[in-house]
Every structure is written in C-alpha cells, then in structure tokens.
Amino acid sequence: MLAGLTVLLLVISAISLTVGASGANLWTALVQILRGEQIGLQESVILFDIRLPRLVMGILVGAALAVSGAVMQGLFRNPLADPGLVGVSAGAGLGAISAIVLGGLLPLTMREGLGYYTVPVAAFLGGWFTTILLYRLSTSRGRTSVAVMLLGGIALAALTGALSGILIYMADDAQLRDLTFWGLGSLAGATWEKVFVAGPLIVLALAATPFLARALNGLALGEAAAAHLGIPVQRMKNISILTVAAAVGAAVAVSGGIGFIGIVVPHLLRLMIGPDHRYLLPNAALLGASLLILADMISRSIIAPAELPIGIVTATLGGPFFLWILLRNRSLLDL
C-alpha cells in the first residue's frame, strides 16, 4: 500500500508539473531533465520557479492536512473530527490574521527574531489554543462527546471567525493586501520562501506521528484502557494536540483554509487498509499529498487560464463524502 501510494504520488506530481496554462511543452522538458539535457529558459522558469514550489507546497500541505485529520480523529476517538470542521483551522486562521494585522505591535526584537515565521507561528498558536479548548469542552472523565465536539467546534469557528472579521476591519491598506494574498485558500501564491517557512513545522509534525501511532491505537479502546496498557495517556494527548496544531497552523499559514482533506483521506484509508494508526498515518500523508495536488490540478485547469480556488474543489468533492460518512455512522453519533 505504502509503495503503491508512493508511485501514485510520483505520477501525479509529474503530471502536475507539466499540466497548466503556460502552453509550453513541459513533458518534453521534464524528459530532457531526466536525460540530463539542457532545457530552455522559459521552461526552466516555469518548472523550477512556479510549478515546483507549488508542487512541493501541495505535497506538504496535503500531507499535513490528512495526517492532522487522522491524528485528531484518533485523539477524539471519532471519524468526524476534522481540523476544518471543528474550528482548528479557523483558530489557526485567527492566529495568522492577528500576526498580519497586529504583528506591528510586537517588540522589535521578537519581530526580527521570528521574521517570515511570524505568521505560521501565530497560526500554530491559534490552532493549538483552539484544539486544547475543544478537547477540554468535549471531553470529561475520559469520554469524548461527539455532539459537544461538533457543536463546540461550530461555536469556536464562529467566534474565531468573528474575531478575524474585527481584525480585518481594523486592518490598513497594506495589511489588507497581505490578508487578501494570504486568504485566497489556494496554492496559487506558492513560492520557495513559503515552502521554507511552512516546511519545517510540517516536517516536524509528520516526524512525530510514528511515535503517536501505538498510543492512538490504545486510545481507541478508551482512555482508561489505554492507561492500563501502560500508555502515558496525558503526555500522548498533549503531543497529539501539538502535532495537529503544528501541521494545521503551518498549512493554514501558507494556503489559507483548505477543507475536507483531513476527513476524506483517513476515512478512505480505513476502508482500504483498516484503522491501525501505524499504517494509517504514513499512508494518509501520501494519499493526502496526492489528492491535494490532484485537486490543485483540477482547480487550475477547469477554467484555465483562470483558477478556481482549491477550497471549492475540495469542498465539492469532500462535502458529499462527509454527508455519506455521517449517514453511515448515524448510530454511532447519538445526536
């Protein structure tokens, strides 16, 4: 499975590099590169300065969203937990917007120290805070209430949305321009700079997941049962929340809110390979990356040369899918 998904990711990546509005024959260029031949300047610029950062960012963001969805579902012991649905992305968004609008209020040394990382770090903090709040709200005595999680998530998303609105209202013209570019909810603004800004946080989060897999498996039995198996439950929950916040924060900071990857990918994989997190998490990273690149390809070719925001593509595919999961799991929900 892992090998199959790796091949899928490679194939989709190669197609994604060559498909687009430029009109240049990039397949030929790609083949030339593989043969070690020189390619033209135009092709080189399109490939290496436009398409490749976009591809790498798509891979990072797709993997981050899918894995954070899977970790969150394991943590909340519920297949409907998704960072986009329960307010974590909105919280990360609030963090990012705060950094853009209020960043000037930070002490100069801090601003200089964080540099380009100000927005993703703020998004990470926003996502972290929201996840902790949501977990506290919906879990008491080791039991997570699905109803409270979903409804609490709606409330948190609304609240953070309102706060974001206030901040946008306060923003000056230059900040508004930054916000517009940030809030497109797409990979369109991908640059190497953004890749290097979001990459480390996402890679760090992905690197933590192999250590979480066993604990998330144990948690599926319930918190008490996990503790009886010798799992340090509280520490693992804290690391899970940090992982989700880092992955979502970084993804939101560079691509705005892209929904449904976090719920569609883990669910598909559970149907195919079962729910064991040791296999679910690495496969989710690969499939999430593949799906997001595919969605990105659709978003930039369907009305080419214009681009459809990728959020619209993922929502069109993911919305019905989510409803389907909802109906299938109706008995589990107790709503």
Binding site: Q73, G74, R77, N78, P79, R214, N217, G218, L219, A220, L221, L229, G230, I231, R270, G274, P275, D276
Partner: peptide, 16 residues
C-alpha cells in the same frame, strides 16, 4: 471502540 478494528487487532493491543 472508535474505529472498525478486527477482533485480532483488538486482542493484539493487549500485547503492547
């Protein structure tokens, strides 16, 4: 149990 685990998977969790 939260996810569709098989009987074998559940029993093996004991060996963690």
């Amino acid at each position: 149990i939260a996810f569709p685990f098989t009987v074998l998977e559940i029993v093996r969790f004991g060996m963690m």
